[in-house]
Amino acid sequence: MFNKILLAVDGSEHADRATDKAIALARLSKNATVELLYVVDGNKSKSDVLKYGDSDTASFKRKEMLKAYEAKLYNKSVAYETTILHGSAAQTIIEHANKGQYDCLVMGSRGRNEFQTFLLGGVSHKVMKHVKAPIMLVK
């Protein structure tokens, strides 16, 4: 049913819950794999480089951050691979999701507050509109 699952995470609590759901979906079939996707957007690049000093350290810290998700998948014996991409969050997720043959995209409804959503637009909203695969949006 769901053999190839794309799980987009952003480090928020919503993403934690999305990971649990992706695991539940993956365990429905025998050979399911989960692709853990994290997108670094321009503003994140700026604040991470300021916070960690340079690009290499920032990349290292992001891999550390993703280890929590990887551990969840590993503990439930779900096969996974990790992808880190750079670009605008919504656009990059949409392009990546439409390029591969995914059975399902799982993601958290973003952790932005209402004011930010008003200014920047919801990532999940755009993704819902343009990704061809079925989507599970976890609240």
């Binding site: 321009g42 700026k46 480089v49 750079h86």
Partner: peptide, 14 residues
């Protein structure tokens, strides 16, 4: 040099 690091990070290149 700060900006260069930010562009490094945005484009994932050195």
């Amino acid at each position: 040099l700060l900006t260069a690091s930010i562009v490094d990070d945005m484009t994932d290149t050195g």
